[in-house]
Amino acid sequence: MKPVRILTTVLLAFAACAAHAAELRVLTHSSFSLPKARLAAFEQQSGVKLSLIKGGDAGEMLNKLILTRANPIADVVYGVDNTLLAKASAAGVIAPYSGAALKHKARYALGEGVVSTDYGYVTLNYDKAWFAKNKLALPASLQDLTKPEYAKLLVVQNPSTSSPGYAFMLATIAGMGEAQAFDWWAKLRGNGVKVAKGWSEAYYTDFSRNGGERPLVVSYATSPAAEVFYSKDKISTAPTGNLFLKGGVFRQVEGVALVKGGKEGEAAAKFVEFMRSPEVQAELQTTMWMYPVVEGSTTAPVFAHAAEPGFAAEMAPATIAAKGGAWLKRWNKVVLR
């Protein structure tokens, strides 16, 4: 074949791939997951084709949306949480929503046009076997973690590159106050805290449950339940446990919103309602490992292992947006530099 002909063939093949029919573009973070059948049912009922676009970690995803606001890459966005809410709102990427989804009674609301769909808690997890084997008492407070007997036992995520890491940093600031929190972080550094890039790195290379050497990890309150769900032999007790310490628990509320300048407005609104439907609220528990926000939702049986903490750090989204950047810089200086 002559080069010209090869070139034409290649270009035609690409052009064919690029052509697409009218569809609803949904931007999500990389953890978004719902059963295929559920998504197919939505397509059938709403008459639009869903085009799911994964934009990376939640923070990264929002930045991609902000960067392209003049020419939005999606019509709906899922995964904006209370740590990102004010930033999204200030950047003007969210369109107001006032439809049927708001009729459901929700445990936690987000506002600013974002309809809450689910929530979770960023908290410490511990490796039960490790603490039993080493006959060490569990730390009773965050202050305990700065003591010599807990030296080099904790791995956290870098708040600059990980949303649970960011939420955990915010929890310590909300719990102790800014000055004391950074004091605590400095002591923690002296006590050998390990910083991993993201959740996967921390959980699968540093956490003692998976071959690392640290029995304490920043994770989610649902992680022990997921350990049971994804265990090989159907175990009845979780190998890991939640450690709810004051100042070490952050409630993360996630939601779905219309994108300003997005197309397919009617279908987009339907998708917002879909995310609050009883089916999705029930299924998201074991596909995304979050708690359903709509009151009266069916609870997955395995969530018996995911008891909610009685308390969590509260922080206004506006405060997070105003000070988050400076806190990150300070954290970086105190813990890494």
């Binding site: 996967s200 994770s219 265990s231 490992w289």
Partner: peptide, 8 residues
Amino acid sequence: LGRPGQAN
């Protein structure tokens, strides 16, 4: 690797 659990 983005989810907890031995099976993952």
